[in-house]
């Protein structure tokens, strides 16, 4: 019960942040994917950098309280899914969360994106057994993290990756000047 309330509150905050940085604008997403404006990409990278340092610091303080949930790495399926996702991201300008935020804002096309998503989920459900289940076991490494791969404490890895992200965010321009 309390988990649902926390999730609702996190959702409201997340939706508000996404709206304020215009990540729910498909035109803004398209200009980020064309690498003309990097503000949403920087927003995501900064969220991740801050999140990883805070979450692994919290886990040092109260390891029992954390609800980590690492998704399994099945290389072929995750990469293939990412490639399919990217085409949809480029064409529609929405991701599964931002279209819901866009619908909350009153964007008409966001409702079409949600409808497409529902039909996509139905299509996936219908082909799951025949097309998807066979590729999941391919190149499957289970729930691994970068810390498992490099054999270093997670806090150290989080700090190193977080700092790399921050350096890259600072080095990149937010508005990219076109050469022509």
């Amino acid at each position: 019960m309390s988990a649902s309330i926390y999730a609702l509150l996190v959702g409201v905050a997340m939706g508000f942040f996404i709206q304020r940085v215009r990540a729910s604008s498909p035109a803004m997403i398209a200009s980020n994917l064309r690498l003309e404006n990097l503000s949403v990409i920087k927003f995501m990278a900064l969220t991740i950098a801050v999140g990883m340092v805070v979450v692994y610091a919290l886990s040092l303080l109260m390891p029992q309280a954390m609800h980590f949930d690492i998704k399994p790495t099945y290389v072929i399926g995750v990469l293939l899914g990412g490639l399919v996702f990217g085409v949809g991201f480029g064409v529609g300008g929405y991701c599964p969360g931002t279209c819901v935020v866009g619908a909350g804002e009153g964007r008409k096309d966001a409702f079409f994106a949600i409808l497409g998503g529902v039909v996509g989920a139905l299509a996936f459900t219908l082909v799951y057994t025949t097309l998807i289940a066979p590729i999941v076991p391919l190149a499957s490494y289970g729930k691994i993290t970068l810390a498992d791969v490099v054999h270093l404490p997670t806090m150290v890895v989080a700090l190193v990756v977080g700092v790399i992200f921050l350096v890259v965010i600072r080095a990149l321009p937010t508005e990219v000047k076109k050469a022509k």
């Binding site: 995750v78 990469l79 599964p96 969360g97």
Partner: peptide, 23 residues
């Protein structure tokens, strides 16, 4: 609307193949 629909279809299809999305 057509592009939003096609995009919505592909992001959920891709996300479910991969087991997750942007978030």
């Amino acid at each position: 609307y057509r592009n939003a629909f096609i995009g919505g279809f592909l992001i959920i299809l891709g996300a479910r193949i991969a087991g997750g999305c942007t978030s």
